[in-house]
Protein backbone atom coordinates (compact mmCIF):
# COMPACT_ATOMS: atom_id res chain seq x y z
CA UNK A 1 0.00 0.00 0.00
CA UNK A 2 1.02 3.63 -0.42
CA UNK A 3 0.53 6.23 2.25
CA UNK A 4 1.01 9.91 2.70
CA UNK A 5 2.68 11.00 5.93
CA UNK A 6 2.50 14.44 7.49
CA UNK A 7 5.24 14.59 10.06
CA UNK A 8 6.21 17.21 12.64
CA UNK A 9 9.75 18.35 11.87
CA UNK A 10 11.61 20.49 14.37
CA UNK A 11 15.41 20.58 14.17
CA UNK A 12 15.91 21.37 17.86
CA UNK A 13 14.26 22.71 20.99
CA UNK A 14 15.14 26.25 19.97
CA UNK A 15 13.73 26.08 16.44
CA UNK A 16 10.11 26.31 15.52
CA UNK A 17 8.65 23.21 13.97
CA UNK A 18 6.28 22.53 11.12
CA UNK A 19 4.55 19.68 9.37
CA UNK A 20 6.24 18.23 6.28
CA UNK A 21 4.79 15.63 3.97
CA UNK A 22 6.34 12.41 2.70
CA UNK A 23 5.26 9.46 0.60
CA UNK A 24 5.56 5.99 2.10
CA UNK A 25 5.52 3.57 -0.81
CA UNK A 26 5.13 -0.20 -0.99
CA UNK A 27 4.30 -0.54 2.67
CA UNK A 28 3.71 -4.14 3.70
CA UNK A 29 0.82 -4.83 6.09
CA UNK A 30 3.19 -6.96 8.18
CA UNK A 31 5.50 -4.03 8.91
CA UNK A 32 5.37 -2.34 12.24
CA UNK A 33 4.72 1.39 12.26
CA UNK A 34 8.33 2.07 13.19
CA UNK A 35 9.58 -0.21 10.41
CA UNK A 36 7.52 1.86 8.02
CA UNK A 37 9.29 4.97 9.37
CA UNK A 38 12.66 3.18 9.03
CA UNK A 39 11.98 2.65 5.34
CA UNK A 40 11.00 6.29 4.87
CA UNK A 41 14.15 7.34 6.70
CA UNK A 42 16.36 5.17 4.50
CA UNK A 43 14.90 6.89 1.47
CA UNK A 44 15.40 10.31 3.01
CA UNK A 45 19.05 9.56 3.72
CA UNK A 46 19.67 8.32 0.20
CA UNK A 47 17.98 11.46 -1.13
CA UNK A 48 20.38 13.58 0.92
CA UNK A 49 17.74 14.68 3.41
CA UNK A 50 17.54 14.50 7.19
CA UNK A 51 15.84 11.40 8.57
CA UNK A 52 12.96 11.80 11.05
CA UNK A 53 14.16 11.49 14.65
CA UNK A 54 12.04 9.33 16.95
CA UNK A 55 12.75 7.47 20.18
CA UNK A 56 12.58 3.69 20.16
CA UNK A 57 14.56 0.77 21.49
CA UNK A 58 12.94 -2.56 22.41
CA UNK A 59 10.28 -2.53 19.70
CA UNK A 60 8.36 -4.97 21.85
CA UNK A 61 6.12 -2.55 23.67
CA UNK A 62 7.97 -2.78 26.95
CA UNK A 63 10.75 -0.18 27.23
CA UNK A 64 8.44 2.80 26.86
CA UNK A 65 10.85 4.64 24.54
CA UNK A 66 8.57 5.02 21.58
CA UNK A 67 5.56 7.25 21.48
CA UNK A 68 4.00 9.65 19.05
CA UNK A 69 0.61 11.03 18.19
CA UNK A 70 -0.71 9.16 15.19
CA UNK A 71 -3.68 10.92 13.63
CA UNK A 72 -4.21 12.69 16.92
CA UNK A 73 -4.21 9.51 19.01
CA UNK A 74 -1.37 8.62 21.37
CA UNK A 75 0.36 5.48 20.00
CA UNK A 76 -2.19 5.30 17.19
CA UNK A 77 -5.53 3.62 16.62
CA UNK A 78 -5.00 0.14 18.05
CA UNK A 79 -6.05 -0.22 21.65
CA UNK A 80 -3.51 -1.31 24.25
CA UNK A 81 -0.71 -1.09 21.73
CA UNK A 82 2.48 0.96 21.79
CA UNK A 83 3.55 2.57 18.52
CA UNK A 84 6.27 -0.02 17.99
CA UNK A 85 3.71 -2.81 18.17
CA UNK A 86 1.25 -1.12 15.88
CA UNK A 87 1.27 -2.89 12.53
CA UNK A 88 0.53 -1.40 9.16
CA UNK A 89 -2.35 -3.77 8.56
CA UNK A 90 -4.31 -1.27 10.66
CA UNK A 91 -4.06 1.16 7.72
CA UNK A 92 -5.18 0.95 4.13
CA UNK A 93 -3.85 2.06 0.79
CA UNK A 94 -4.13 5.82 0.25
CA UNK A 95 -4.41 6.70 3.95
CA UNK A 96 -2.96 9.98 5.14
CA UNK A 97 -1.27 9.80 8.51
CA UNK A 98 -0.38 12.77 10.70
CA UNK A 99 2.50 12.06 13.06
CA UNK A 100 3.35 14.44 15.87
CA UNK A 101 5.33 14.34 19.12
CA UNK A 102 3.78 14.15 22.59
CA UNK A 103 2.68 17.65 23.45
CA UNK A 104 2.85 18.74 27.08
CA UNK A 105 4.49 21.57 28.92
CA UNK A 106 6.40 19.12 31.08
CA UNK A 107 7.70 17.21 27.99
CA UNK A 108 9.68 19.76 25.97
CA UNK A 109 10.45 18.76 22.39
CA UNK A 110 14.07 17.90 21.71
CA UNK A 111 13.86 17.19 18.00
CA UNK A 112 11.14 16.08 15.58
CA UNK A 113 9.21 13.39 17.50
CA UNK A 114 11.66 13.14 20.39
CA UNK A 115 10.63 14.72 23.69
CA UNK A 116 12.21 15.07 27.11
CA UNK A 117 10.38 12.86 29.62
CA UNK A 118 12.88 13.20 32.45
CA UNK A 119 10.09 14.68 34.58
CA UNK A 120 8.90 11.09 35.08
CA UNK A 121 12.22 10.11 36.63
CA UNK A 122 12.01 13.06 38.97
CA UNK A 123 8.52 12.02 40.06
CA UNK A 124 9.89 8.57 40.93
CA UNK A 125 12.71 10.24 42.85
CA UNK A 126 10.15 11.72 45.22
CA UNK A 127 9.20 8.35 46.64
CA UNK A 128 8.48 5.80 43.92
CA UNK A 129 10.54 3.15 45.70
CA UNK A 130 10.93 1.20 48.90
CA UNK A 131 13.80 2.58 50.96
CA UNK A 132 15.75 -0.60 51.39
CA UNK A 133 19.46 -0.90 50.85
CA UNK A 134 21.07 -3.96 49.35
CA UNK A 135 21.72 -6.74 51.84
CA UNK A 136 20.01 -8.13 54.87
CA UNK A 137 16.61 -8.70 53.27
CA UNK A 138 14.51 -11.41 54.94
CA UNK A 139 13.64 -14.60 53.07
CA UNK A 140 11.27 -13.89 50.18
CA UNK A 141 8.63 -16.15 51.69
CA UNK A 142 8.74 -14.42 55.07
CA UNK A 143 6.56 -11.74 53.51
CA UNK A 144 3.37 -13.51 52.50
CA UNK A 145 1.38 -11.71 49.85
CA UNK A 146 -2.00 -12.98 48.75
CA UNK A 147 -2.31 -13.80 45.09
CA UNK A 148 -4.87 -11.10 44.46
CA UNK A 149 -2.77 -8.38 46.09
CA UNK A 150 0.22 -9.53 44.08
CA UNK A 151 -1.87 -9.53 40.91
CA UNK A 152 -3.25 -6.06 41.59
CA UNK A 153 0.20 -4.73 42.31
CA UNK A 154 1.44 -6.27 39.08
CA UNK A 155 -1.43 -4.73 37.07
CA UNK A 156 -0.28 -1.29 38.18
CA UNK A 157 3.43 -2.09 37.99
CA UNK A 158 3.04 -2.88 34.29
CA UNK A 159 3.33 0.83 33.41
CA UNK A 160 6.13 1.38 30.89
CA UNK A 161 6.57 5.10 31.53
CA UNK A 162 5.88 6.03 27.93
CA UNK A 163 3.97 9.23 28.61
CA UNK A 164 0.96 8.49 26.39
CA UNK A 165 -1.36 9.23 29.30
CA UNK A 166 0.05 12.73 29.55
CA UNK A 167 -0.09 13.28 25.81
CA UNK A 168 -3.69 12.10 25.62
CA UNK A 169 -4.92 14.17 28.56
CA UNK A 170 -6.44 17.57 27.71
CA UNK A 171 -4.80 18.86 30.92
CA UNK A 172 -1.51 17.08 30.29
CA UNK A 173 -1.82 15.43 33.68
CA UNK A 174 0.56 12.67 34.71
CA UNK A 175 -1.85 11.21 37.24
CA UNK A 176 -2.12 7.81 35.57
CA UNK A 177 1.64 7.32 35.57
CA UNK A 178 2.03 8.50 39.16
CA UNK A 179 -1.06 6.68 40.38
CA UNK A 180 0.26 3.46 38.85
CA UNK A 181 3.44 3.56 40.93
CA UNK A 182 1.57 4.58 44.08
CA UNK A 183 -0.87 1.72 43.58
CA UNK A 184 1.83 -0.84 42.81
CA UNK A 185 3.68 -0.12 46.03
CA UNK A 186 0.54 0.61 48.00
CA UNK A 187 -0.89 -2.87 47.36
CA UNK A 188 2.16 -4.54 48.89
CA UNK A 189 3.19 -4.79 52.54
CA UNK A 190 6.68 -3.57 51.57
CA UNK A 191 5.22 -0.26 50.45
CA UNK A 192 3.29 0.56 53.63
CA UNK A 193 5.85 2.32 55.84
CA UNK A 194 6.46 5.06 53.29
CA UNK A 195 2.96 5.25 51.89
CA UNK A 196 2.13 8.76 53.12
CA UNK A 197 5.49 10.24 52.34
CA UNK A 198 5.41 8.72 48.88
CA UNK A 199 2.07 10.09 47.79
CA UNK A 200 2.72 13.57 49.14
CA UNK A 201 6.13 13.80 47.51
CA UNK A 202 5.11 12.42 44.15
CA UNK A 203 1.98 14.55 43.87
CA UNK A 204 3.96 17.65 44.77
CA UNK A 205 6.53 16.85 42.12
CA UNK A 206 3.85 16.52 39.45
CA UNK A 207 2.93 20.15 40.17
CA UNK A 208 6.52 21.31 40.19
CA UNK A 209 7.08 19.73 36.78
CA UNK A 210 4.12 21.58 35.32
CA UNK A 211 1.78 18.67 34.70
CA UNK A 212 -1.90 19.58 34.80
CA UNK A 213 -4.55 18.37 37.21
CA UNK A 214 -6.77 15.38 36.63
CA UNK A 215 -10.36 16.28 35.86
CA UNK A 216 -11.55 12.78 34.95
CA UNK A 217 -11.64 12.93 31.19
CA UNK A 218 -10.46 9.32 31.15
CA UNK A 219 -8.45 9.79 27.97
CA UNK A 220 -5.35 8.47 29.74
CA UNK A 221 -6.62 4.95 30.26
CA UNK A 222 -7.88 4.84 26.69
CA UNK A 223 -4.40 5.70 25.41
CA UNK A 224 -2.40 3.57 27.80
CA UNK A 225 -0.66 0.73 25.98
CA UNK A 226 -0.64 -1.32 29.19
CA UNK A 227 -4.29 -0.70 30.02
CA UNK A 228 -3.53 0.85 33.39
CA UNK A 229 -6.91 1.54 34.93
CA UNK A 230 -8.00 4.98 36.02
CA UNK A 231 -8.69 3.34 39.40
CA UNK A 232 -5.03 4.01 40.19
CA UNK A 233 -5.83 7.73 40.19
CA UNK A 234 -8.66 7.17 42.65
CA UNK A 235 -6.23 5.25 44.81
CA UNK A 236 -3.71 8.07 44.59
CA UNK A 237 -6.29 10.66 45.52
CA UNK A 238 -7.53 8.62 48.48
CA UNK A 239 -3.99 8.09 49.69
CA UNK A 240 -3.26 11.76 49.24
CA UNK A 241 -6.24 12.90 51.28
CA UNK A 242 -5.52 10.41 54.03
CA UNK A 243 -1.83 11.26 54.10
CA UNK A 244 -2.50 15.00 54.20
CA UNK A 245 -4.98 14.55 57.04
CA UNK A 246 -2.48 12.48 59.01
CA UNK A 247 0.25 15.00 58.32
CA UNK A 248 -1.82 17.90 59.62
CA UNK A 249 -3.01 16.01 62.71
CA UNK A 250 0.64 15.24 63.52
CA UNK A 251 1.66 18.83 63.28
Amino acid sequence: MNLKLHVWRQPSAKDTGRIESYEARDVSPDMSFLEMLDVVNEELIVAGKRPIAFDHDCREGICGSCGMMINGVAHGPQKATAACQLHMRTFKDGDEIVIEPWRARAFPIIKDLVVDRSAFDRIIQRGGYVSVNTGGAPDGNDILIGKSSADHAMDAAACIGCGACVAACPNASSSLFTGAKITHLGKLPQGQPERDRRVIGMVEQMDIEGFGNCSWFGECQEACPKEISIDVIKQMNRDYVAASARASSNE
Binding site: Y129, V130, V132, T134, G135, A137, P138, D139, G140, N141, I143, L144, I145, G146, K147, A150, A153, M154, A157, H184, L185, L188, Q190, G191
Partner: peptide, 18 residues
Protein backbone atom coordinates in the same frame (compact mmCIF):
# COMPACT_ATOMS: atom_id res chain seq x y z
CA UNK B 1 15.02 -11.80 48.88
CA UNK B 2 16.41 -8.42 47.86
CA UNK B 3 13.93 -8.00 45.02
CA UNK B 4 10.98 -8.99 47.20
CA UNK B 5 12.07 -6.41 49.77
CA UNK B 6 12.08 -3.76 47.03
CA UNK B 7 8.48 -4.56 46.18
CA UNK B 8 8.99 -6.54 42.97
CA UNK B 9 5.56 -8.14 42.42
CA UNK B 10 6.63 -11.71 41.78
CA UNK B 11 3.89 -14.21 41.02
CA UNK B 12 2.39 -15.72 44.18
CA UNK B 13 0.39 -18.79 45.05
CA UNK B 14 -2.98 -18.44 46.78
CA UNK B 15 -1.32 -19.06 50.13
CA UNK B 16 0.87 -16.02 49.57
CA UNK B 17 4.08 -17.90 48.81
CA UNK B 18 6.28 -17.23 45.83
Amino acid sequence: DQCVAQGVPFAREYGGHL
